[in-house]
């Protein structure tokens, strides 16, 4: 994809602006601090929802913002993992850590298959293929027996973590979810700032040049797709335990659209953007819930406004103002 004009904050691209370790250190410390105290001010279930979606959006952003590949089917990984995790916890009776792990593993495998198929076509076809493959998963989920069809898998037990820590209490579970989020978030952070991440950005900006330098770009793209799908699966598997529910909503195309919206609102190709986008979109859903059917319309308007006027997203704009990659 010739993504030369994808709105990536100028500061990230500039030669002089080396990612400064101190800025990140301070911001990460603030993030951890906020996560630690948040449940004393806000409802833990709401916060867990935000964290799951923040991780989901960060996973998509790794692919979209740093790889330049728009997957419009990430709900497949999120939703499939949540089904597997719910099934593992409820039917197989696995403890939560293994349930989440099996969901994540399933999403990673699915990501390898879908990724290998989708990267066979470039650009705009990539988005259409991922969307169509995700719709395949949606129909399979609708018809399979183990997913419970329209009902989904309900009353999934949260279980006892490592056999010692019961997760029935919301606040206990919150800190577990927060740990999972931070682990996933730091993994993405690490990948982006590794040599692998550098090559990935080079491919995004100019794939022919990366090929001419001897990089096997297809393998880089596939690896990114698989990692992204796996982390999306981690988010979905965790969400199934938080809400004790895996349902068709999680695999529907509108979910894929929502996570793209979060990434767009927060800022594609920024570290903290997708998390901020998740806060905005999930809060919007919560506070607009009384409007009911108007929520998709509002989301559609946000999409249109962001694309036309606000392509860098919240963190992208901040990043430009402060001249620092965020």
């Amino acid at each position: 994809m010739s993504a030369h004009d994808v709105a990536v904050p100028a500061a990230v691209e500039g030669d002089g602006a080396r990612p400064s370790g101190r800025t990140y250190g301070v911001l990460l410390a603030v993030l951890v601090g906020v996560i630690l105290v948040a449940p004393y001010f806000l409802y833990p279930v709401f916060l867990m929802k935000v964290l799951c979606f923040a991780l989901f959006a960060s996973a998509l952003n790794l692919l979209l913002g740093y790889g330049g590949l728009l997957s419009f089917g990430h709900a497949a990984f999120f939703g499939f993992a949540s089904y597997i995790s719910a099934h593992a916890a409820k039917v197989w009776g696995l403890p939560p850590e293994l349930a989440i792990l099996s969901g994540t593993a399933a999403a990673t495998v699915l990501g390898a298959v879908f990724g290998a198929l989708a990267i066979r076509r470039q650009g705009i076809y990539f988005a259409m293929i991922t969307l169509a493959l995700a719709q395949l998963i949606y129909f399979v989920s609708l018809q399979s027996e183990f997913t419970g069809g329209e009902d989904g898998i309900q009353s999934v037990p949260r279980g006892v973590l490592f056999g010692v820590l019961p997760l029935t209490d919301d606040r206990t579970l919150y800190y577990v979810v927060a740990t999972i989020f931070l682990a996933g978030f730091l993994l993405i952070f690490r990948i982006i700032h590794s040599p692998f991440g550098q090559v990935l950005r080079a491919i995004r900006d100019n794939e022919p040049r990366a090929i001419s330098l001897g990089y096997r770009t297809v393998q880089y793209k596939l690896a990114t797709f698989v990692i992204s799908a796996g982390i999306a699966g981690l988010a979905g598997a965790t969400k199934a335990l938080v809400f004790q529910l895996a349902s068709l909503t999680d695999v529907h195309w509108s979910m894929s659209g929502e996570v793209v919206l979060m990434t767009l609102v927060g800022g594609m190709g920024t570290i903290f953007g997708p998390a901020v986008g998740a806060i905005v979109v999930v809060s919007m859903q919560n506070y607009l819930a009384t409007l009911g059917a108007w929520v998709p319309i509002v989301q559609g308007i946000v999409f249109v406004v962001c694309v036309l006027l606000f392509r860098e997203g919240i963190i992208g704009v901040l990043s430009r103002w402060t001249k620092r990659p965020l």
């Binding site: 994808v6 659209g257 108007w294």
Partner: peptide, 22 residues
């Protein structure tokens, strides 16, 4: 970039379908 066209028209689809559904 052409992905923005996809995102914009996706937003439009949400708006149009939402209005008719309401």
């Amino acid at each position: 970039d052409h992905l923005y066209g996809l995102l914009l028209t996706f937003g439009l689809a949400l708006i149009i379908q939402g209005i008719f559904r309401n």
